[in-house]
Design a binder for these strands. Sequence first.
DNA 1: ATTCGTAATATGTAGCTACTTAATATGTCA
DNA 2: TGACATATTAAGTAGCTACATATTACGAAT
Lengths: 232, 232
Amino acid sequence: MSDTRLGWKDVRDRIHRMILTGRYGPGDKLPRDADIAEELNCARSTVQRAMQDLSDSGLVERRRKGGTRVRPDPVTRATFDISITRHEVEQTGAAYGYQLIGATQEVPPRGVQAVFGQKIAQPMLRVQALHLADARPYILEDRWICLQTSPEILSLDLTGISANEWLVLNKPYDRLDMRFYAENADPARAGLLGTAPGEALLVIERTTWIGDAPITTVKASTAPGYRLRSQS
Amino acid sequence: MSDTRLGWKDVRDRIHRMILTGRYGPGDKLPRDADIAEELNCARSTVQRAMQDLSDSGLVERRRKGGTRVRPDPVTRATFDISITRHEVEQTGAAYGYQLIGATQEVPPRGVQAVFGQKIAQPMLRVQALHLADARPYILEDRWICLQTSPEILSLDLTGISANEWLVLNKPYDRLDMRFYAENADPARAGLLGTAPGEALLVIERTTWIGDAPITTVKASTAPGYRLRSQS
DNA sequence: ATTCGTAATATGTAGCTACTTAATATGTCA
DNA sequence: TGACATATTAAGTAGCTACATATTACGAAT
């Protein structure tokens, strides 16, 4: 049929195109892997890999015995890469700056206790810091670090290394939870970010866990104009 | 060694844990797949699948001949599922409402022409609509639809079906570009969203393409309080 | 030394077999 | 008719072989 055999990406694209062109619509059932394999003259494992990929990207749903069908409620799945803030700044060609505002041991407020699912209030390390790009405020982070899982943080000089960077390199997480929302700058944050109070800020909240134990939660308020773009 | 053989997810978790515990740190080179396979008494293909997964999630980097190494610049990869707005609303248990504000043929402004990479200014269909949750404003969308790729949209009654939904079901895309940012509500949007001018709004911009041809671009201004959460 | 071609090597892919697992369908018995 | 055990089905996983491909490493020629 063809001089070159089909790779699993070819198979994936082929099925993808069939869905795109309406050959199969939302909710429709696709043939069994084995039949597609025969049709395309390739191995079932090739179709299986192709289908896995389509399933991962949210285009189809696969169930044992039930077969494969086009998702009736199509989702657009977007992925974002969030790297260490220093690298993010340096990648734009700007000079990175870091400024520690404060590091204190406090009992976290209700909201922070809630995201951690804590019952009893335990003191945590609160680190507030400002990331700069070409000496201009870039991201203001308000971070709470669990001292049970990261006691070593207390012996660190946080004026030199950002807690962000140290944690990413030394405390890899298991589970991650992210929230995005917009918030008006209060006077305090406006001052630190060098903007006017009331300015709309994109806020990125991240909480990381290792097993059931929380590691840290950050509220990163980005400077006005900050944009997050999806990969691919 | 064990009564049950290791699956590729077991292998993945095992390597993941080795990185978590510091057995291998950022930048470190991992053993060859074949060696790991022998070490764990499983097939190379099993290790390969495990490694692929770790690579996909941004934890390790793999290069032919170069081997596998822990990413020196770890990224946290977050995925978001964006579904049809109606489904999103209904899933919260709220009643969905849709209100068409206007549909006109216009030549798009510079900014829209730019995201589409258009050289010559061609008229497009502009659809402005409001999505409601329990009769309260939820998302205000300002959409531009390319008439070259979707001429059928002109014969639709957009008071009944949202352009959002029709496009997702009928014009699947090839490529997607997303931007997130925060913006202060201008008086017009504030009125439509039932909030005060200046309020911080989370804005989600999406542009979809089929091949090289643009399909649509939307600027979705979410009502205050809107939050986006990452999956898993 | 520098350049360039070639060999060596680790991952990537395809194909096959065999078996497992989850979900559906069916058939039996009350 | 309904409930429950059992068979069937289609995807999921593991193992193996063989070959492809991308890079690095090395060695020869200039």
